[in-house]
C-alpha cells in the first residue's frame, strides 16, 4: 500500500551537525585566544628590536628547565595544529552536508547575507589556510623571504614590512581574517548557546565587532608602523 508519509531517509550514522559546529566554535575560539597572544607579541616591536627579539627568545625558553627548549611553543603548535585539523575538517563536513541538502539550486537567487557568509567563512577560511601556510614559510621556516634573510626575528619582520607589497599581503590577509571573525565570533556564541534573547543578540553582535577590530587593528599596527618608518 502506498503512503505519502515517506519513511525516514535511511538512519545513517551521522554525527550531529550541532556537534560539528561546536567543534568549529571551540577550535575557532582557541585560535582567537592564540591570535590575541600573538598580536600582543607582535606589538612588542613597537618598543624596539631588542624587546621583540627578547620576547621571541623568551617564548622559546619559557619554563626552562622544566620544559625543554621551545616546550611551550610545541604545546601551542600541537594545539594549533589539532584545532586547525578539527576546524577545517568539520567546516568541510558541514559544507558537504549543506550541498547535499540542496542539490537543485534556485534559478534566481536573492543577493543576501548568505553570499557574504560563503565568501567570508568558506572561501575566506580557505584563503586564511593559504595565508597560514605562506606565513609559516615566511617567518617560521623562512623558506620565503621578503627583502633579505636575517638572523634576528626583528630584522626579518622589519625588512619584510619595509616593502609595500609585504605589507599588502598581510593587510589582505587581515581583511579576510576580519571578515571571518566578524561572523565567526557571532556564530561561536550562537553555537555555544549564548544567544537566548534579543538583547543578548545585540550584545553578541557588538562583542564580535569589538574583538574583530582589536585583532585586525592590533595586527596591522606593526606592519604599517614599519612601512612608515616609525620603528627603527
Amino acid at each position: 500500500m502506498a503512503t505519502s508519509t515517506l519513511p525516514a531517509r535511511g538512519d545513517r550514522k551521522v554525527s550531529s551537525s550541532i556537534l560539528l559546529k561546536t567543534i568549529m566554535a571551540a577550535s575557532g575560539l582557541f585560535f582567537i585566544g592564540y591570535l590575541l597572544l600573538h598580536m600582543y607579541g607582535n606589538l612588542m616591536i613597537l618598543s624596539g628590536r631588542e624587546a621583540f627579539d627578547e620576547y621571541a627568545h623568551h617564548i622559546r625558553t619559557f619554563g626552562e628547565p622544566m620544559l625543554p627548549e621551545k616546550g611551550l611553543l610545541w604545546v601551542l603548535r600541537i594545539g594549533l595544529l589539532a584545532a586547525l585539523v578539527a576546524h577545517v575538517w568539520s567546516g568541510m563536513a558541514l559544507w558537504r552536508r549543506a550541498r547535499g541538502a540542496r542539490s537543485v539550486r534556485y534559478v534566481k537567487k536573492r543577493a543576501g547575507y548568505g553570499n557574504f557568509y560563503a565568501a567570508a567563512m568558506r572561501w575566506g577560511g580557505l584563503a586564511l589556510l593559504a595565508f597560514v601556510a605562506f606565513h609559516l614559510m615566511h617567518f617560521t621556516w623562512q623558506t620565503v623571504t621578503i627583502g633579505e634573510a636575517h638572523a634576528s626575528p626583528a630584522a626579518r619582520v622589519i625588512d619584510s614590512f619595509s616593502h609595500w607589497w609585504g605589507v599588502g599581503i598581510y593587510a589582505l590577509a587581515m581583511f579576510f581574517l576580519g571578515m571571518h571573525l566578524l561572523h565567526g565570533i557571532w556564530g561561536a556564541a550562537m553555537t555555544l548557546g549564548l544567544n537566548t534573547s534579543l538583547r543578548r543578540a545585540e550584545q553578541i553582535r557588538l562583542t564580535s565587532i569589538v574583538i574583530t577590530t582589536i585583532i585586525v587593528v592590533g595586527f596591522l599596527i606593526p606592519p604599517f608602523a614599519i612601512l612608515f618608518g616609525l620603528v627603527d
Binding site: 525516514a8 531517509r9 535511511g10 538512519d11 545513517r12 551521522v14 550531529s16 551537525s17 550541532i18 560539528l20 559546529k21 558541514l94 552536508r97 549543506a98 547535499g100 541538502a101 540542496r102 547575507y113 548568505g114 557568509y117 567563512m121 561572523h183 557571532w186 556564530g187 550562537m190 553555537t191
Partner: peptide
C-alpha cells in the same frame, strides 16, 4: 533532522 538530510546551521 540530520538523518532526514537537512544541512547544519551555520548561523546565517
Amino acid at each position: 533532522h540530520d538523518a532526514e538530510g537537512f544541512g547544519g546551521c551555520t548561523n546565517l
